[in-house]
């Protein structure tokens, strides 16, 4: 009797009923996910006509990739994407983690406070973008008015029409929208830190800071990894906030990959080029995705049945 006594085929046949449960989902996913991915890769090797008569597309090999990688706009957008992603992720995480720490203690009104802090996360990005546009308004914006009232500037700042300020201004909005996510993830993580360890540390003479560093932080490694990865992914994929607030402007100062792809595809109707761009993004995401799946599925394999 060998350990692997039955072949793959036999196992598939034996489990055939199991596939019925996943078949509908797989069918839909093949249609709306599998096929589009294939098509994106396929189109990335073609020049497509601007009227989208796809039967007239011309095979272009790797031309699209070459053009993207050598274009100045790509380099600028890549730089902006990096700035956008790194700073958004960093501040959202730090703000959210801080909030989680402050909330990780029983006190009156804790639930309410958590609820309030979570609201930005559920509000529509479109609505949020318009609200912040209004806050940032060059003449009547409340932030400008507050800055003047507090004596920071003499005249209201024109946040969104200024190539140096626009990126930080957008990142603030993004962080506002996103820090609650980091907060609940880290709060959930904090609640799994075993109480008895913290008590033991206190008995051993550790202060708040020491037990945080030696007990809490090491325990949060897994959650932190997943949270940061998800934030990175979300930020790399951001579209709505920059698109609605500035449309990538002024002068491309807030153009990031996704808005740029959208502009190429639906502004200039160059699907081939935009597809190649998507594939590049796709490859970057796959790298992050690998770590994401690894982080998420630890311990999943032990359950059996």
């Amino acid at each position: 009797m060998t350990a692997r006594s039955d072949g793959l085929l036999r196992r598939i046949v034996r489990h055939r009923a199991d596939y019925l449960y996943v078949a509908p989902a797989l069918g839909v996913m093949l249609l709306v996910i599998g096929y589009p991915i294939y098509d994106t890769v396929y189109l990335s090797f073609f020049n497509t006509p601007p009227n989208l008569a796809l039967e007239d597309k011309i095979f272009a090999g790797l031309d699209n990739y070459g053009r993207i990688l050598s274009a100045d706009s790509f380099h600028e957008a890549t730089w902006n994407t990096l700035v956008w992603t790194v700073f958004s992720t960093f501040f959202a995480f730090v703000l959210g983690f801080g909030a989680a720490l402050a909330l990780n203690r029983e006190f009156r009104g804790r639930g309410l406070l958590r609820g309030i802090l979570l609201i930005p996360y559920v509000i529509s990005a479109v609505a949020a973008s318009y609200v912040w546009r209004w806050l940032y308004h060059s003449d009547f914006g409340v932030i400008g008015a507050i800055s003047v009232a507090l004596g920071f500037t003499d005249t209201p700042i024109n946040f969104l029409d200024n190539t140096t300020v626009v990126m930080p201004a957008l990142i603030v909005v993004n962080v506002w929208k996103e820090f609650p996510f980091a907060m609940i993830m880290m709060l959930a993580g904090l609640q799994t830190v075993p109480d008895h360890l913290l008590r033991a540390a206190r008995v051993d003479g550790a202060g708040t800071w020491e037990s945080f560093v030696h007990i809490t932080l090491p325990h949060l490694k897994g959650v932190t990894l997943v949270t940061v990865l998800l934030l990175l992914v979300t930020n790399l994929n951001s579209f709505t906030i920059p698109y609605i607030m500035t449309g990538g402007g002024p002068a491309g100062a807030s153009e990031i990959w996704i808005t740029h792809i959208y502009q190429l595809a639906f502004g200039r109707i160059r699907f081939g080029l935009a597809s190649a761009y998507s594939v590049i993004l796709f490859i970057v995401m796959m790298g992050l995705g690998y770590f994401y799946v690894r982080a998420l599925t630890q311990g999943d394999e032990r359950r059996g049945g």
Partner: peptide, 24 residues
């Protein structure tokens, strides 16, 4: 394999799907 591919979908930006779905 199937489950990981489900998970991985969360990684893809909408824009990657936008053009092919539009064509579809």
């Amino acid at each position: 394999l199937l489950f990981y591919s489900v998970l991985l979908r969360n990684m893809f930006p909408a824009v990657v799907f936008l053009m092919p779905l539009f064509i579809m």
